[in-house]
Design a protein around this nucleic acid. Structure first.
Length: 679
DNA sequence: AGACACAGGTTTTTT
DNA sequence: ACCTGTGTCT
């Protein structure tokens, strides 16, 4: 039997409320994941078939963690009879929808092997349409149009109201073309995954009925981050049986700018009047000082479900407030503090985190850390999958699967150069639009071919041949039982087209070139592990691409190992905790960000500060500067208004220090001397 | 096609 | 300051 005795009364109530709608308001550090996983285990212990339990998260990381912890809690079913033991479904919104769509999407006029476009592919599609529309007067920002498009499609009308009317108009204008362009490529984007599932449910009640019957108990994590479409999806599944348990924290809603509707959580009673609300307020992470500060700050927000964190961890140290002359001094002193803590209090680098509002703030910090000889890693930022060569490889793989995927085809058509110039591709694109066909189909069309000079026709024919051969080899029946078939295929494809040679040639630095090649080879090697063993190479490749598109962070955790300081934005630190936290750049214009004043999202900026504060377990240091280098210019700054919301008695000002040596050499010596002192 | 110069625009980010 | 996209020249 499941042991609930170590839970506090609120946690226990949450775990034991098994039927009907439940809202668990889980403050930062209140054992949320533990409650969710224990509740799932409890459902199963009380006789709910595991297969009827659905847990939905936003990130793959959260899904993995939950999956693991649930597995530890529920007894392994006897592995006897050859039928697979049922497990609860714990996955992200998007992978849930992929599962549903892989079964039913043909009813919506897509082919079952649809590809999923990631953001850069979406952007390419938008750019192409904007180009086509060709509003010569001004050059619109495609990223802004795409963001607005996403808002519209997800039903975030309210949020879109503040936006630039030009962008709005453009987004509305582009919408039709964008949607049909993707559909023509048999491609769906992240939003489509949710929206098409909704369309499926509306158009085909039997599909909805099947999903309702399958998922009788639904839990949703980070509910404050759901957008209108996700909200509808959850409601479609649970409206009837009403076994919906949502977990979240309105005070930690920091993704409004990308469509999250905090109202979904605040107005839960509107749709589920009988909802049972449970507040988790006992925090197991931070000192009382830190929690008092967090409570005081967040109380300045108007519309919220009241909640007040407390803990038994004692008062702890006061919050230290630093005032610096500029961002360089800030960075240097942060490093000095880290090294001082390490020397005097044996605090490891890995117990320290530096939090900032914008990514560009990491630059001076990184410089100072490197000069001080401190190991660090930056969370987020440029992803492995944004690298040019990785995108090229993925495009090749996608074309192998589906040559009618225009975005991928256009990406690789002339990489490496094979005589298909931009002009040629533009004409092909035009021809494909006239014919309502894919670019690849246009390439094969004899009528289209006659429009090109002989040399180009040869290049075209040879490219078409390359693609078709690659596809034929991928589908060869003999390769089913070779676990390395995919790797061999992909490596052969890239080698055959001369991609590796091109990569080596185009990179000046030979070492960097080898690095890129090695990265690619490793990624190709990982194809071996894709999909179910014994499945066809096509199926395994589909699975591989799906996993990569839906889970871009998966490899990045390896760098997390070892004794290194964490540099992270306030947005990506949600869900994490660190013994010692430094929040830098508490200035008007940065936090709250200048843009938030225009957009009227001051509340969300305050929540961001709240999230940052509540990451700290033991000590918290906060700093602001009198001036900061912005776009190359030293600009004066004023302390953030949020600093005044910190109760005075919880804060102490950092002592003035004598100036540190300024040149890098002197500073290195200074740090060496300090280290020597503590040895 | 590739190298170079110039203009413009700089929040947050997962799937 | 720095990165991206675009335009021009070879």
């Amino acid at each position: 039997m499941l042991d609930l005795s170590s839970l506090n009364p609120q946690q226990r109530a949450a775990v034991e409320t098994l039927r009907g709608p439940v809202l668990i308001l889980a403050g930062a550090g209140t054992g949320k994941t533990r409650v969710i996983t224990t509740r799932i285990a409890h459902l199963i212990a009380r006789g709910v078939p595991p297969g009827q339990v659905l847990g939905v998260t936003f990130t793959n990381k959260a899904a993995r963690e939950m999956q693991e912890r649930v597995n530890q809690l529920i007894p392994r079913p006897p592995a006897a009879n050859d039928q697979k033991p049922e497990r609860p479904t714990i996955c992200t919104f998007h992978s849930l929808c992929v599962r549903i769509l892989r079964q039913h999407i043909e009813r919506l006029g897509y082919k079952r092997n649809f590809v999923i476009y990631d953001e850069s592919e979406q952007l390419t599609a938008v750019k192409k349409i904007l180009h086509h529309i060709s509003s010569r007067a001004e050059k619109p920002d495609p990223a802004a149009v795409l963001a607005m498009l996403s808002r519209f499609r997800n039903g975030g009308e309210r949020a879109a109201a503040f936006a630039d009317p030009k962008i709005r108009a453009l987004a509305e204008h582009v919408r039709g073309g964008y949607e049909s362009a993707l559909k023509a490529c048999n491609a769906v984007d992240f939003d489509d995954l949710i929206l098409l599932t909704l369309r499926l449910f509306r158009g085909f009640p039997d599909a909805l009925a099947a999903c309702r019957a399958r998922y009788r108990h639904v839990m949703v994590d980070e509910y404050q981050d759901t957008n209108a479409a996700q909200f509808e999806l959850v409601h479609a599944l649970t409206r009837e049986h009403r076994n919906l348990c949502v977990v979240g924290d309105d005070d930690q809603s920091i993704y409004g700018w990308r469509g999250a509707e905090i109202a979904n959580l605040l107005d839960m009673e509107k749709f589920f009047p009988e909802v049972k609300v449970i507040k988790l307020e006992q925090n197991y992470r931070s000192t009382t000082t830190i929690l008092k500060a967090a409570n005081a700050v967040i109380q300045h927000n108007a519309r919220r479900r009241g909640k007040s964190l407390w803990s038994q961890h004692g008062i702890g140290e006061k919050i230290t407030l630093f005032a610096f002359a500029d961002d360089d001094e800030e960075a240097r002193t942060v490093v000095e503090e880290i090294e001082f803590d390490r020397g005097t209090r044996r605090i490891r680098w890995s117990d320290q985190a530096i939090l900032f509002r914008t990514n560009q703030q990491s630059r001076p910090l990184e410089t100072a850390l490197r000069q001080g000889g401190v190991r660090y890693h930056v969370v987020g930022g440029q992803s492995f999958f944004d690298r040019r060569e990785v995108r090229d490889l993925l495009a090749y793989l996608k074309v192998g699967l589906n040559p009618h995927d225009d975005i991928s085809l256009l990406r690789i058509a002339n990489v490496p150069a094979r005589g298909l110039s931009d002009a040629t591709m533009q004409r092909l694109l035009g021809a494909s639009q006239e014919r309502h066909s894919s670019v690849f189909a246009a390439m094969k069309d004899p009528q289209v071919q006659t429009a090109f000079v002989a040399k180009t026709r040869v290049s075209l024919a040879s490219f078409v041949e390359t693609v078709e051969q690659a596809r034929a080899r991928l589908q060869q029946p003999g390769t089913v039982n070779d676990p390395q078939a995919l790797r061999t295929w992909a490596d052969g494809l890239l080698t055959g087209v001369g991609y590796f040679d091109e990569l080596r040639r185009s990179e000046k630095d030979p070492e960097a070139a080898e690095n890129r090649v090695r990265n690619l080879k490793e990624l190709i090697a990982s194809l071996d592990g894709a999909g179910a063993p014994g499945a066809t190479p096509v199926a395994r490749l589909e699975r591989f691409l799906e996993d990569i598109t839906l889970d871009t962070q998966r490899e990045e955790e390896e760098e997390n190992h070892g004794d290194v300081v964490t540099l992270i934005t306030m947005h990506s630190c949600k869900g994490l905790e660190f013994p010692h936290v430094f929040i830098v750049g508490l200035e008007e214009g940065l936090l709250p960000h200048a843009r938030s004043k225009v957009e009227g999202t001051l509340d969300e900026e305050r929540r961001l500060f709240y999230v940052a504060i509540t990451r700290a377990m033991r000590t918290l240091k906060i700093s602001h500067c009198a001036a900061r280098r912005k776009y190359g210019q030293l600009t004066p700054c004023h302390p953030s208004r949020f600093l005044q919301e910190l109760p005075k008695e919880l804060v102490e000002l950092a002592e003035e220090r004598e100036d540190l040596p300024m040149t890098p050499e002197q500073r290195k010596e200074w740090f060496a001397a300090m280290r020597a002192t503590f040895e």
